[in-house]
C-alpha cells in the first residue's frame, strides 16, 4: 500500500488545515468537559484543573478514557457532545496518547465541541504533525516534560501555571480569532 497524494480543492488562501470551531465568547453558563485521556498521573493534573475551574465558578464535567492508546469510545464522545460546551483534553505525554487524543479533539470539534489539548512540551511536534495529517488546526497548551516522575504537588503546579492559557484557548479571543 502506498501513500496517496491529493490536490487542495480550496482557494489556498488559508492553511491547508481546517480551522477549529470558534469557541464561545465566554464560559458563563457553559460546561467544560474535562477529558482525562487515561494516561498515568493525568488524573492528578485534571483534578487540579477541576479545582481551578470550580474556584473560578465555571461548571465542569469529568470524563475518562479507558485507555490512552485508543481514540475515545463513541459513547464518551457522544456524552461530551450532549452534556458540555467545550472540552479540555489532558494530559498527553507520549506518542500514542498524542495521536489518539488529537483525533478525539478533531472528532469532538467536528461534532461542534471546540477544545484544547494539553500535552507535554516533548510532544509539540507530534501534535502538530498529527493535526497536519488530519488536516485540522487544533489548539494546544504545553506543560513541562516529563510528568510521570513528579510529585503530585509539582503536577498541580504545572496545572496552575497553564490554567490561564487553557482558559484562553476555550474562549473566543477579543480580536475575534479562535
Amino acid at each position: 500500500m502506498s501513500a496517496i497524494t491529493l490536490r487542495d480543492p480550496t482557494a489556498e488562501s488559508a492553511a491547508v488545515n481546517r480551522p477549529r470551531q470558534p469557541p464561545p465568547a465566554s464560559l458563563d453558563g457553559k460546561t467544560v468537559a474535562l477529558l482525562d485521556i487515561g494516561k498515568m498521573r493525568g488524573d492528578e493534573f485534571v483534578d487540579r484543573l477541576e479545582q481551578l475551574f470550580t474556584e473560578s465558578k465555571v461548571s465542569t464535567k469529568r470524563y475518562k478514557k479507558p485507555t490512552n492508546t485508543r481514540t475515545a469510545p463513541t459513547e464518551i464522545i457522544q456524552d461530551i457532545v450532549t452534556e458540555t460546551d467545550v472540552v479540555v483534553l489532558a494530559l498527553s505525554d507520549c506518542g500514542s496518547c498524542t495521536s489518539c487524543s488529537t483525533h478525539d479533539l478533531n472528532d469532538l470539534d467536528n461534532l461542534g465541541i471546540p477544545g484544547v489539548s494539553v500535552l507535554t512540551t516533548a510532544f509539540k511536534q507530534a501534535f502538530e504533525q498529527q493535526c497536519s495529517k488530519i488536516g485540522f488546526d487544533g489548539a494546544s497548551v504545553y506543560t513541562p516534560h516529563p510528568v510521570l516522575n513528579r510529585t503530585t504537588e509539582q503536577i498541580h503546579q504545572f496545572a496552575d501555571s497553564v490554567f490561564d492559557e487553557i482558559r484562553a484557548a476555550i474562549v473566543l479571543s477579543p480580536a475575534g480569532g479562535a
Binding site: M1, S2, A3, I4, T5, L6, R7, D8, P9, T10, E12, V16, N17, R18, N106, N110, K133, I134, G135, F136
Partner: peptide
C-alpha cells in the same frame, strides 16, 4: 503540470475520511 497545493496522506490514511477531515 498542476499547480494546486499538494496534500500528502500517510500510508495508512483513508483518503475518503481525509477529505472529510479537511472540510472539503
Amino acid at each position: 503540470g498542476l499547480s494546486a497545493r499538494v496534500v500528502r496522506l500517510e500510508e495508512w490514511d483513508d483518503e475518503m475520511e481525509s477529505c472529510f477531515d479537511h472540510g472539503w
